[in-house]
Design a protein around this nucleic acid. Structure first.
Lengths: 254, 254
DNA sequence: CGTTCAGTTGAGTTGCTTCAACCCGTGTGG
DNA sequence: CCACACGGGTTGAAGCAACTCAACTGAACG
């Protein structure tokens, strides 16, 4: 029943499973912690809320979701962790996780103890810099999303989510059409932007009818008119990239 | 027309203006940067979105609000910065601010250049630890709020906001009634939790009618029944404190 | 070929918003 | 000292965006 981890499955695209080519000092993880790599299957919960936690995750392949839920079962996805990124779910007490961390597709995760992580940061100043930038980018992203969660229409929220995912996946917007795949259902997309799956569907279809996007099998998304979508999302694409993507500002060549 | 900065004004309570007694290595700022202290009046914008930014703020007295807005004028407050806390609004590009930072009452702010800040962190490992914990706490708080922004009723959001403010201001909940003042109008509270000021008003009055809280002049709030409010907010008070407040977990005495 | 599960669409409901009126404490200028 | 304007809070009435409920489709799978 188990499939080779790197094969396509459930209609998900292979690129979810492949190690990403990430800029940055990734070799640090590969060298020291190759033996800690774990393959996890779609749906695996690496942490539940209130679980013990004293480690940071490094995602070598696949997507993770960071989320929280209310007693009544409502579920909010706070962010996605993409290949090449790290995340530490440990709360201010240093002992428990304040979020749930779940694999959205089969993934490869390296677990790094907090103490070891601290030492790594101290010893590799380039790693420290890269992680700082990543952290700021994550914070900026979360802020953009929060703004729209609180204050804007379903259309704006969906448009923003698509733009953000597109930017994170490829840095699109420079050329014409932009196609990408996300390992999410409409329910999960709704959990990300605070909408019911039914309304996500309606909104996506409306955008499709307007010719701004096309949706394919299980969340294959093509953005035809990036600037129209950016307008709906209420963002300046270039500015957003510099704020939200670590190293997203184009290098200055004097 | 200008008043002594430490006098009460505009109906705000004096405690807004007093230097806080903060646990932690605050002397670092006081010693090295006393000359950079700036007194700012209520409403001062220390940063606008897209402003140049290459510094971190340390709040010696008063409250700051971190916020973002949409073109249509909608305004979302992302977090408050309380006396003794620091915040850096610089985006991933290292050059611009991705948020607006505004004084909610007369305040005293120290500006610390990013380079200097890095050196401080390197030289004072206790400062580094404290700031790490504060950062995690802020992240956890924002996550809790995001969960409720997306997924819960007005009553829950208001209740949670009151609980969070109460915890941050005093670590209440241990005894009976809990009174505090926040330098906010209902409009601003609405901007914080994603509601119109009208609905904030209705919700506060409903809570008051139920005897759970009392509101006084300009946001003097007394919580009479903390656990009822925590129920409405959907939180476990003790757990929330450990997750959201740096050093909020009670010391273990063996 | 039946089951299952995600997506799609319609119909009715509701919680929050908007608009508008009013109240009240404060500041202000004649 | 009073008249008045102003801004924030409070309350009612009406509208609407998103939700829930429910039915249907179509693809995947055993």
């Amino acid at each position: 029943m188990t499939m080779p981890w790197n094969q396509s499955e459930n209609g998900l695209k292979p690129e979810c499973y492949e190690d990403a080519a990430i800029p940055g000092p990734i070799s640090v993880f590969e060298d020291l912690f190759g033996h800690d790599r774990r393959r996890v299957t779609k749906g695996t919960r690496l942490r539940r809320e209130r679980d013990e936690s004293h480690a940071r995750f490094y995602v070598a392949a696949g997507w993770l979701a960071v989320s929280k839920s209310l007693e009544d079962g409502e579920h909010q996805i706070l962010d996605f962790i993409l290949p090449g990124e790290t995340y530490d779910p440990t709360a201010a007490d240093g002992k428990t996780s304040f979020v749930e961390v779940e694999a959205l597709c089969d993934a490869v995760v390296v677990t790094i103890d907090r103490g070891v992580w601290s030492r790594l940061l101290r010893d590799h100043s380039d790693l420290w810099d890269a992680e700082c930038r990543r952290d700021i980018a994550a914070h900026a992203r979360q802020s953009e999303r929060m703004l729209r969660l609180g204050k804007s229409s379903a259309e704006t929220r969906v448009a923003y989510a698509l733009i953000e995912l597109c930017l994170r996946l490829s840095g699109c917007g420079t050329t014409s059409d932009c196609t990408f795949h996300v390992p999410l259902g409409q329910q999960q997309l709704g959990d990300f932007i605070g909408l019911s799956s039914v309304h996500v569907c309606r909104t996506l279809r409306r955008l499709a009818r307007q010719g701004i996007i096309t949706t394919g099998d299980h969340m294959d998304i093509t953005i035809h008119d990036v600037s129209a979508l950016a307008d709906l999302a209420g963002v300046d694409l270039a500015a957003l990239r510099t704020e939200i993507i670590p190293g997203g500002s184009p290098p200055i060549r004097p």
